[in-house]
């Protein structure tokens, strides 16, 4: 405050027009220092990672060239074969089961991991948080590789990897939703002598029902996106075909498979958006509506 008033009086004294700037003196210095630090960090990183910037500039030409020469006429016939279409169905089933199992496990975990409703803040809350964070931080591809190593190739490791992924993904969102409930009904139900389970059943569930349905649909959508590529590391589905053709350098088939993945993911996104919209319209507005959930 003294700073500003001093500046003002100084301005009033000499009566000259001062250059206006968005940030005042000490603040602007910090901002320039932060900017300088960021630039230095970027420069050092580029040096450290040995990135050839010339290659970055050539990249656009090269990508165009590679796409035109190797990938251009996508082998559409390949993705219309019954074998491949069967693998698409497998991917959908894997995503469905993975999301279902993941949600079934995530729902109680979300209850334990919500600070306001958890049955025990000392034991269950940190444990559930840790499980959700652990399954979130390990990428779904690493889960796939681990399960494939333990159980062998097949769709089961894919389903288990997607389950772990969904626990982390849905658990966090579901818990956030519980933490945002109105505590009035909770206190009322508690005051009537309900135990912890009854409180959740009659005070929390009716409040989060719609939002949870939206999250469940969204989880399925994201699980499908992951299911299209888990096959790349040995779980079943479309990813397996992708891996095989990448290794055999069948680039035109790879192009067709990639296009089919993009098309299917866009379709699943549209279906999920439609379903979420319907669910949200059926009941009161929810937190999920109008907020873009991170993928």
């Amino acid at each position: 405050m003294t700073m500003i008033s001093f500046a003002r009086s100084a301005q009033a004294r000499d009566g000259s027009r001062r250059q206006w700037s968005r940030f005042r003196y000490p603040d602007s210095l910090f901002r320039y220092a932060a900017l300088l630090g960021a630039v230095l960090f970027i420069g050092y990183s580029i040096e450290f990672l040995g990135i050839d910037l010339a290659r970055l500039l050539q990249m656009f030409g090269r990508i165009g060239e590679v796409l035109a020469n190797r990938y251009y006429p996508p082998d559409v016939g390949y993705v219309l074969q019954p074998d491949y279409l069967h693998s698409v169905l497998e991917s959908i089933q894997m995503a469905y089961l993975g999301a279902l199992f993941g949600l079934l496990l995530a729902a109680p975990l979300a209850w334990f991991a919500s600070y306001n409703m958890t049955p025990s803040r000392r034991v269950l809350y940190p444990m559930a948080r840790f499980v959700i964070m652990g399954s979130r931080s390990v990428h779904e591809m690493i889960w796939t590789i681990l399960f494939v190593t333990i159980l062998g190739f097949g769709m089961l490791p894919g389903v288990l990897a997607l389950t772990m992924f969904c626990i982390g993904f849905a658990g966090k969102l579901l818990a956030e939703e519980i933490e945002a409930v109105d505590m009035g009904p909770v206190d009322a139900i508690r005051a009537s002598g309900a135990n912890a389970v009854q409180t959740v059943m009659y005070a929390v569930w009716p409040q989060v029902k719609v939002a949870w349905t939206g999250i469940a649909i969204y989880t399925w959508d994201v699980a499908f996106r992951a299911a299209t590529v888990v096959g790349f590391f040995g779980a079943g589905g479309m990813g397996w075909y992708l891996k095989r053709n990448v290794q055999q350098l069948e680039n035109e088939r790879v192009a067709a498979i990639l296009l089919s993945i993009v098309a299917l993911v866009i379709v699943s996104e549209l279906v999920s958006a439609w379903a979420r919209h319907r669910v949200a319209k059926a009941r009161r507005p929810t937190a999920l509506q109008g907020r873009t959930v991170a993928d």
Partner: peptide, 16 residues
């Protein structure tokens, strides 16, 4: 968003 990061990485490994 609809192309998985693994697929993006495959594309760019092929290109650069």
């Amino acid at each position: 968003r609809s192309i998985h990061e693994i697929v993006w990485a495959l594309i760019f490994v092929a290109a650069v």
